[in-house]
Design a protein around this nucleic acid. Structure first.
Lengths: 203, 203
DNA sequence: TCGAAGTGTTAAATATCATAAACGAGTAAA
DNA sequence: TTTACTCGTTTATGATATTTAACACTTCGA
């Protein structure tokens, strides 16, 4: 993970300045990476143990490499697939928030109060959540990359993560990878209050 | 039955020929992911806009899909490439924590209870903090880069961030860049309880 | 018991990728 | 200039991925 600052430029370039949809320019990204490391196509090819032509073709998006191929190529840099497809984040300004300034997100049986307004580009989201008795998030929630954790303040709170399920009481907590499908339910008689944190923001 | 040895060779070839790699099982992962979402191969294929055969073949590691193909397949779940490849280094074990299992960090007037034990390599730290009346963190705390946020559950809590100072009550919150020097104080008569989250972990 | 619809898997045909080798251009030293 | 390297690109061919269409099996009703 090179922290050059040049990397930042590249990432910006790759992500198309915010307009880009899901399809980033794989070729452009590889080329930027290679140039950042001062490698010629042939040199990278040699290190990666592949032909030089494939690097040229990939960089021009004239071919869509197999994952095995891309992994080999990245191995010559070296860089992991994980890092290659990773994104980045940025800083912020506001510090304090009055209780009634927390932006309301939910509305019905489940209410979220979020610290901060626009969290795009921020690395942390913290929520104060309230679940009325019987409230249920449903089971098809799959948030994006990141991790999620929370502490129960009040009530009986059922948390399901992948295959695991548990009912948590005040003071109990959870911590899991947000990519695993998860579900929250209030299984008690009283309102559930819980404080959760995610990284990065998923709303 | 038919050809187990041949299949094995193919898999080895796919994963990079001679070089020993961090061989994550791409097929297995896709299969797990698909099953977690209760999708059949054909259903996923339909959503992704690809043939059902390719899903079967990928899951058996009988083929190394192109990046474009894998992206299309993941699009049917949906899941990003980033998330997909980030999964291989993130097999979290512990998910739930009983109130008395939270690892105690402080001890005196200030007590931290942390969710999870060893947070190295994780992206999120969540703490339940208690401050006795008069408790003060002192003003020279400068944590590493990252962001920090919290919500006050109980008590009157003075937060100082850089030049800014504010007394927060129940429900109030804060959010700042951890590189800015900051200080916490209990300025009320009762105990302060606050839930905070940091990224990345600073202990 | 039969068929219709579901599952995952497989075979042959086609589309695509990956390679080796050649190409044109640029640079530097002799 | 020539010679000998480098660079990124392109082409022909063999290898592999992907599709279409089938296979074998299970489940659910009629």
């Amino acid at each position: 993970m090179s922290n050059d600052g040049a990397t930042e430029k590249i990432v910006n370039k790759i992500n198309g300045g915010g307009v880009a949809e899901d399809d980033f320019d794989l070729g452009q990204r590889l080329r930027s990476l290679r140039e950042l490391h001062n490698l010629s196509q042939r040199e990278l090819a040699k290190r990666a143990g592949v032909s030089n032509a494939v690097i040229s073709l990939i960089e021009q998006n004239r071919t869509s490499p197999s994952v095995g191929m891309l992994k080999k190529v990245l191995g010559g840099i070296p860089m992991s697939m994980n890092d290659f497809f990773a994104l980045d984040v940025a800083p912020r300004a506001e510090v304090f928030f009055k209780a009634d300034e927390l932006t309301e997100i939910g509305g019905g049986k489940i209410s979220f109060r979020q610290v901060g307004r626009d969290l795009t580009g921020k690395a942390l989201q913290i929520l104060r959540e309230r679940y009325q008795p019987g409230a249920d998030t449903g089971d098809t929630m799959l948030r994006h990359e990141g991790e999620e954790s929370g502490i129960v303040i009040r009530g009986r709170f059922e948390v399901t993560v992948g295959e695991q399920r548990r009912v948590l009481g005040p003071g109990d907590a959870f911590y899991f990878d947000s990519r695993i499908p998860h579900r929250f339910r209030n299984v008690g008689e009283e309102e559930v209050e819980v404080v959760t944190a995610c990284t990065p923001p998923s709303f």
